[in-house]
């Protein structure tokens, strides 16, 4: 699509949407959001960019082969499941650590669900973007 307006706007939009997707990913455990939704938003941003600039630029934006991204995401998610096994917990048990916790405040909570969500995020971004790239290249 050769539209100056669209391609200018899409560059703005892709940054905003990627940022928003990370925000959604981050708040996923206490509020609506999470890896899947964040991934969809990120993929939507990449697709908007791809519609304006074409599939080749989309690949450039992703930097890695979308299939590799999917599989890295899968490995990440599985890693989050395996971590608790090392401590004799069941597979996929949520394990948390609290950075800077005080008596009243839990501080910064980081846990295996976050790793799992990042994996889901990567799978969704890679999967959806890969599908659209393949279709765009086809047409």
């Amino acid at each position: 699509m050769n539209s100056l307006i669209f391609s200018t706007i899409s560059r703005l939009l892709v940054g905003l949407m990627l940022l928003f997707s990370v925000f959604l990913l981050w708040r996923g455990h206490n509020e609506p959001g999470g890896g899947f939704i964040g991934g969809l938003v990120a993929a939507a941003g990449i697709i908007v960019y791809g519609l304006a600039e074409g599939p080749a630029m989309m690949r450039k934006l992703l930097r890695v082969n979308p299939r590799t991204l999917v599989l890295i995401g899968l490995l990440t998610a599985m890693f989050a499941g395996i971590l608790p096994l090392l401590q004799d917990n069941a597979f996929l048990t949520g394990m948390w650590m609290f950075i800077g916790a005080t008596a009243t405040d839990k501080g910064l909570a980081l846990g295996t669900p976050l790793i799992f969500d990042i994996g889901v995020y990567l799978v969704v971004v890679g999967g959806v973007a890969g599908m659209v790239i393949a279709l765009e290249e086809e047409l």
């Binding site: 590799t68 599989l71 890295i72 899968l74 490995l75 599985m78 499941g81 395996i82 096994l85 597979f91």
Partner: peptide, 17 residues
């Protein structure tokens, strides 16, 4: 039990990446 599921999945990912 978990290993029966994880091994093929990890193989799937690792063999490609």
């Amino acid at each position: 039990l978990i290993a029966c599921l994880l091994i093929p999945m990890i193989t799937a990912a690792v063999s490609f990446i």
